[in-house]
Write a protein that binds this DNA or RNA. Structure first.
Lengths: 329, 329
DNA sequence: CTGAAAGCGCTTACAG
DNA sequence: CTGAAAGCGCTTACAG
């Protein structure tokens, strides 16, 4: 039913070997005249290549598999954009599988879906896999690289923003702008990434001789609700004059809830975010934030998959602070 | 290098035929004892199926291909969630390819990537393909279905919100709540979807004996900037007392820019959006909006791909109005 | 420059 | 219940 190289071969009066060589552009292995015949036949017949067959025999692949966090914050989209951009320039295909938020079953399923085919390698975006899934991934033998996730082990390669340093820098920024009682909201204290950020935050406090007070840390999941809840807790049990937020959504939650309580931003309360998606600039006041280079992470990740790297490879991508109006000048 | 059924066959002392049958759970075609041996060997050897080979020989596939709009508005994520959910319940895989915003080259590339493998069918999310690409898609012979896109032709199957009716309903809502000079911003007048919305909007005005004034319509691309620009135009050339927005981002742009001009929302200006993503409720005031059932669209789309349907198939998914505080009571 | 042949990893009638 | 054999659509040494 479907057109194959056999059909082309017949139509063009050559062998399938020749068809294959022409279609793959293996220069100098065929006469121009032959090539013309073949291309003409292929076009006429409406030939479309069966990549499954090719991959089966070559055991190679031009496809990058992406396993992606599917949640409300959309930073992952920026990373995927970068991956696609790099892929396009190198004639690579990209297939994406969403892995939900923190569901090990979905994660496993996603890994299976991608690795059932001989992909060039795997990029895991915004997810820290459950231990058993990380192990499963490693067993497949495919090259893999985490993007926007951090690991302690030196046997898991990753590309990310330096979480410790960015949290440190953000906290220092708040201190430099007159804040002393600084809360941290919407960051998971389960993930290694979260732990690094918390460590950076605490280190900056210490460095400025600020005593961390209980309840300043309000862990969460980068969600809007986390921000709302944090302010509620702060109003009850402690008082802060600034909040460093895990995501723009969290910052938005903090902002709205703070207003509910009659707090002026940035006077009564400074707000800073660590996402730096587009949203930050659309909120009024614009949210001061750590702007991560998500696109670059994607590009870099796709680039790495075309090289070879060892398991202790990791790279921190530079970030910058974009000053908005949610913090004092 | 990789473990194949041959290896398992050797290890378990059976033929590859038997291994295949056991691994595929073709009941009653093998002895329980044999099955045990095979499974044990597979486990021991760390066997992973090569789906390429399977698809090559069966010419079938359990994979749904999704071609997805990659832009800032994240309604498409809700649709994909629905697709994945349905797929999971039916043991289907989902591979996603992003197709950029309106770039025909990326679109073509995306179609190629997906159709180079024998997918079960294609779901195209949030995109109206360029004519040549639609044609190309049809030539591939794969079943396909558009989600959140509308077509005039009765030869393109789709699932969407009724764009005419939802715009009509939204406009009527604004009229019912005291507004008479109603602008429409951030909607593309190039796409069929946009045209349907504009038609619904105009029809509602007419029905209420409101004379449409030039400049009320400020087309765009669902972006934040569209909202900003629209307000600027309104301030200059016409005056509106409400704006119906193509997306939550556009609504946010309208809101912020309106405030710049000292306009009170909802007193001086009513704002309504046609997206209904999470963002609408996080903005303050909460944006009154048409809430589309994106998740349901995804589920329904994935379901359809498992049935057979003709090219004149289409379905409108119900929507509802969620009243916020950006419109008068 | 070109073709015949083997083989990638699987499935499935067919025969027993 | 099980196996030998053919074949899915392609690529690639090998020989000429």
């Amino acid at each position: 039913m479907n057109v194959t190289i056999k059909d082309i071969a017949k139509q063009a009066n050559v062998s399938t070997s020749t068809v294959s060589r022409v279609l793959n552009g293996q220069d100098n292995f065929y006469a121009t005249k032959t090539a013309k015949k073949v291309h003409k036949a292929a076009l006429k017949l409406g030939y479309r290549k069966n990549t499954n067959a090719t991959e089966l025999v070559t055991k190679k692949s031009n496809t990058i598999g992406v396993i992606m966090l599917a949640n409300k914050t959309n930073f992952a989209n920026g990373i995927v954009d970068g991956i696609q951009d790099e892929a396009l320039h190198n004639k690579l295909n990209v297939i994406i599988v969403h892995a939900g938020e923190n569901d090990p079953v979905l994660q496993k399923k996603a890994i299976q879906t991608v690795t059932e085919r001989p992909v060039k390698g795997l990029l895991i975006v915004g997810i820290e896999l459950a231990d058993e899934n990380l192990q499963y991934l490693q067993q497949t033998g495919f090259p893999y690289l985490f993007i926007s996730a951090e690991f302690s082990q030196d046997n898991v390669p990753f590309i990310t923003t330096d979480n410790f340093y960015s949290a440190y820098t953000a906290t220092q920024f708040l201190v430099d702008h007159g804040y002393r009682k600084i809360g941290l909201a919407g960051i998971s204290d389960q993930s290694f990434m979260g732990k690094r950020r918390i460590a950076g935050y605490l280190d900056a406090l210490k460095h400025n001789k600020i005593n961390y007070e209980k309840n300043w840390l309000q862990p969460g999941n980068f969600s809007y609700q986390d921000g709302v809840v944090a302010i509620k807790k702060y109003q009850k049990n402690s008082n802060v004059d600034a909040v460093l937020c895990g995501s723009d959504y969290t910052a938005l939650g903090v902002l709205n809830e703070a207003r509910e309580h009659g707090l002026e931003v940035p006077g009564d309360l400074g707000i800073m975010s660590m996402d730096g998606t587009e949203l930050a600039q659309y909120i009024s006041p614009e949210i001061t934030s750590i702007e991560q280079s998500f696109f670059d992470m994607g590009v870099k990740g796709a680039k790495m998959l075309q090289k070879s790297f060892t398991n202790d490879f990791y790279q921190y991508i530079p970030f910058k602070i974009v000053e908005g109006n949610s913090t004092l000048k």
